[in-house]
């Protein structure tokens, strides 16, 4: 059961951080960063298998792969941006955290520009 491993890791690092935060706050931040990365890597393999499953079903039912890949890209960007922002916020850098969020949002919007433009084009061309 991988969840026990993750939980154990999380508890140990939390205790370490609590102990270290008083004396060495800079190391506490590093520990939280590394823990986050390790947990992320642990679930990455499982996420890959889920995406693979999605892929096979999408192919089977002839789903437009464009929608699918765009969706996955948006989710990935959102996840990474959130991860970075939370990390910054934990370290007490709220300003940087909000910038990371802004960057994530902008990148998602840029990615979705073709969707929006095509939708607008359709609306405009439908007008008599």
């Amino acid at each position: 059961m991988e969840i026990f491993q993750i939980m154990g890791l999380a508890i140990i690092s939390t205790l370490l951080i609590i102990v270290l935060k008083v004396q060495k706050p800079e190391i506490a931040i590093q520990i939280s960063l590394v823990t986050g990365a390790i947990i992320f890597l642990m679930i990455l393999g499982k996420v890959a298998s889920v995406v693979e499953l999605f892929n096979t079903y999408a192919k089977q039912i002839n789903l437009d792969m464009v929608y699918f890949s765009t969706l996955l890209k948006i989710v990935g960007i959102a996840y990474i941006a959130e991860f970075g922002a939370e990390l910054c916020r934990d370290a007490g850098e709220g300003a940087i955290a909000s910038k990371v969020e802004l960057a994530g949002k902008v990148i998602i919007v840029v990615m979705a520009i073709p969707i929006v433009t095509s939708l607008l084009d359709v609306v405009i061309s439908m007008m008599p």
Partner: peptide, 28 residues
């Protein structure tokens, strides 16, 4: 897929943006 993805995305400020674009894709 969109529902599953909404479960996957972190419940932060990005959720609104993601919801907007998943909705647009569904409309298309």
């Amino acid at each position: 897929f969109i529902i599953l993805i909404e479960i996957l995305i972190p419940s932060g400020k990005m959720k609104k943006t993601v919801n907007l674009f998943t909705g647009l894709i569904l409309v298309i």
